[in-house]
Nucleic acid binder design. Structure first.
Length: 279
DNA sequence: CGGCCCCTGACG
DNA sequence: CGTCAGGGGCCG
């Protein structure tokens, strides 16, 4: 489900409800949901720990414990984290329930496709989740510049969209927002990265933080709304300009939006505004 | 690198 | 019934 703006939304909703609480029970209903260590060790290591803070790194949501341990969660396609009253019926496909002392809510992780994973990173052992170590800079990092992007991607013949989806230079961008970013920057998603002009690198460096910031703001919901939507309906789709709008008129020029497949992912773009000048 | 895998559910 | 879905890892 979530890309960076959604993970940010989830963090913002969950954090104020959970910070300061002490875990009294961790129920792992599906051991597959815990990548490291095994489910039993995960549960026993967390029991008794107090949640200090939350953060986000790329599409990972991080729970920081007072003792220095960190729980890392990647929701992949359909993962869902919900702070729910214990008497509310659990979601179908609930894999993990975390209960807290004297709390009005419990944390539930549900995930129909079971792609999402929890990791427990003991103090000083970040290697348990190597994917985090491979992440590039955050999209809001001051180092993100046209020159940074050109250096990172500019020698590749891969379509620029594939570069944006790889998490190794800039992290957090997924299939929806890569299309939105490339539309804003007026760059054809299939354009090989080594053929972008300096002006296009400049547009891209501008569009990445601008679009993600925009969608974080548009996706913001209250805890009540988030709970009512079962932790799933939190993307404000009316603000998407191209994704899921195949065939609709381009919001900028009116041409019919096209759909194609790039790197195995469906991709929507405007054939006029995002024309590949090299074809 | 491309292709396949992990999974369930929605939709045509 | 087949196809597709917001993600990423792994294999040859």
């Amino acid at each position: 489900m979530p890309e960076l703006p959604e993970v940010e939304t989830i963090k913002n909703v969950i954090a104020p409800q959970i910070i300061g609480l002490t875990i009294c029970d961790v129920r792992v209903l599906n051991p597959q949901a815990v990548a490291f260590p095994d489910a039993d060790a995960f549960a026993s290591a967390l029991t008794g720990q107090t949640v200090a803070s939350f953060s986000r790194r790329g599409k990972f949501l991080l729970f920081h414990m007072v003792d220095g341990d960190t729980v890392s969660l990647h929701l992949r396609m359909t993962g869902c984290l919900l702070a729910a009253p214990p008497d509310m019926p659990p979601e179908k496909h609930t894999h993990i329930i975390i209960r807290f002392e004297n709390a009005s809510v419990e944390l539930r992780y549900s995930d129909p496709r079971r792609f999402g994973r929890f990791y427990l990173l003991k103090q000083g052992n970040g290697d348990a989740c190597p994917a985090i170590g491979r992440l590039g800079i955050e999209p809001f990092d001051k180092r993100l510049s046209p020159a940074y992007l050109k250096t990172a991607y500019g020698k590749s013949r891969k379509p620029i969209k594939e570069c944006l989806l790889s998490q190794n230079a800039v992290c957090g961008i997924g299939n929806i927002y890569s299309d939105e970013i490339l539309f804003a920057a007026r760059i054809c998603p299939s354009l090989p990265a080594n053929r972008l002009t300096n002006e296009q690198w400049r547009q891209l460096a501008k569009a990445i933080p601008e679009r993600l910031t925009f969608f974080i703001q548009k996706n913001a919901v209250s805890a009540e709304e988030y709970l009512a939507g079962k932790g799933r309906d939190y993307r404000n789709t009316p603000y998407l300009q191209v994704y899921a709008h195949t065939g609709a008129p381009c919001p900028r020029c009116g041409a019919a939006l096209c759909k194609t497949v790039i790197g195995g992912r469906s991709s929507v773009y405007c054939p006029r505004c995002q024309a590949s000048e090299n074809e």
